[in-house]
Nucleic acid binder design. Structure first.
Length: 343
DNA sequence: AATTTCCCCAACCGCGAAGTT
DNA sequence: TAACTTCGCGGTTGGGGAAAT
């Protein structure tokens, strides 16, 4: 099918809309509706193309548009929906009453996406970024051969690799294991939530996460992240588990109390927040699984990545935002881990 | 105070899908 | 079935304000 211009552009105005134009458009639509965008501008007395009128109406003038900042709940919903839907902005917008696809897209690109990148998370896949560490090259090296593994070698490696990168590798490996096993997702979802058994169902069930989310709904949202420590461990190759054990010992030797992270996967890594001493981190013990854990608290600056922008208001804003993201993605990069160079 | 740089977001553009003739 | 029209989506741009220098 041949493309056709949306309208005759000769003499048609472009650029920002004036209040007079807005009023004309609103008045016309209130009286006549918006059946035919092509003929609408002429009938409404506007020197704009129909496309411009439609955009102005749907993105700005529509009476049901919500104004102002995105709430925490909305932000969480966007991230969760984006995880499943990708850049389907219109579909995402349909789950967020009062928000337009354009608004959500802008918010994603200017706020959420940047923060995910800063946290070392690929905003497309929602997984830790592969370019942070070429895991395959590591695993293909003789180092990966357990028979050749020893602490001294690992210590040598540590001079080349940031421990946090190694931690990322752990989660990446676990994630790749999950993808190689087609039953993994369903198994885990069923383990976590016997009601919902596939991601489509999850999306359908989450039209919009309400501001005051019920526990059951919260659980349903959480199943978007279908990783559990047990299941994670189940799919880890024994050799790699051994490798992780060694790494754990290695870190223990080097840094002191380093928890054994053989049971940590993508989901559980947030509880294994860095051995980096953090004066403001809330250190606590998780009695349910005997694993030492840190919990991120929104009021703990150290839980956030290093701020590029030092403005206090923005910093405070990001504290909350980072908490929002990290608490959902169950993944975090420590303050001292400079990711900017990877961006 | 002036200039530069950075960032946000409203608006535009190009394309494909769906509908119509 | 093909040609054409309309609509809607996602990516991109650039004007303007805020922040930094």
């Amino acid at each position: 099918m041949g493309r056709s211009p949306c309208c005759d552009k000769n003499g048609l105005k472009k650029g920002p809309w004036t209040t007079e134009e807005d009023q004309k458009l609103v008045d016309y639509i209130q009286k006549n509706g918006y059946g035919n965008w092509r003929t609408l501008p002429k009938n409404a007395g506007l020197e704009r193309c129909g496309k411009s009128c439609r955009l102005r109406w749907t993105n700005y003038l529509r009476p049901d548009i919500k104004r102002g900042r995105f709430s925490l709940e909305e932000e969480e919903a966007i991230i969760q929906l984006h995880r499943v839907l990708g850049n389907k902005w219109s579909t995402i917008a349909s789950r967020l009453p009062g928000r337009t696809d354009n608004e959500i897209k802008n918010y994603w690109n200017t706020h959420i996406r940047k923060r995910l990148l800063r946290m070392g998370i690929d905003p497309v896949t929602h997984n830790p970024r592969l370019d942070l560490l070429d895991l395959s090259s590591i695993l293909s090296q003789p180092l990966y051969n357990p028979s050749q593994m020893n602490i001294s070698r690992l210590l040598g490696v540590q001079t080349l690799l940031n421990p946090e990168l190694l931690r990322l590798a752990t989660s990446l490996f676990s994630s790749s294991q999950r993808h190689q096993n087609p039953n993994f997702l369903q198994q885990n979802v069923q383990q976590n939530n016997p009601i919902s058994s596939n991601s489509d169902q999850l999306v359908t069930n989450n039209q919009l996460m309400p501001p005051s989310m019920q526990p059951s709904q919260a659980q349903e949202f959480q199943t978007f992240v279908p990783f559990t420590n047990d299941a994670q461990a189940q799919f880890m190759e024994p050799q790699f588990t051994e490798l992780l054990n060694d790494w754990g010992q290695c870190n223990e030797l080097a840094n002191g109390n380093y928890p054994d992270f053989q049971n940590y996967g993508y989901y559980g890594l947030d509880q294994f927040v860095p051995s980096m001493p953090s004066e403001t981190s809330d250190f606590q013990s998780n009695g349910s699984n005997n694993m030492t854990s840190f919990t991120n608290i929104s009021s703990t600056p150290a839980s956030s990545p290093t701020h590029i922008n030092s403005t206090s208001t923005i910093a405070a804003e990001e504290e909350t935002e980072n908490y929002s993201i990290s608490s959902m993605l169950k993944f975090e990069i420590p303050d001292s881990f400079d990711l900017d160079c990877f961006m």
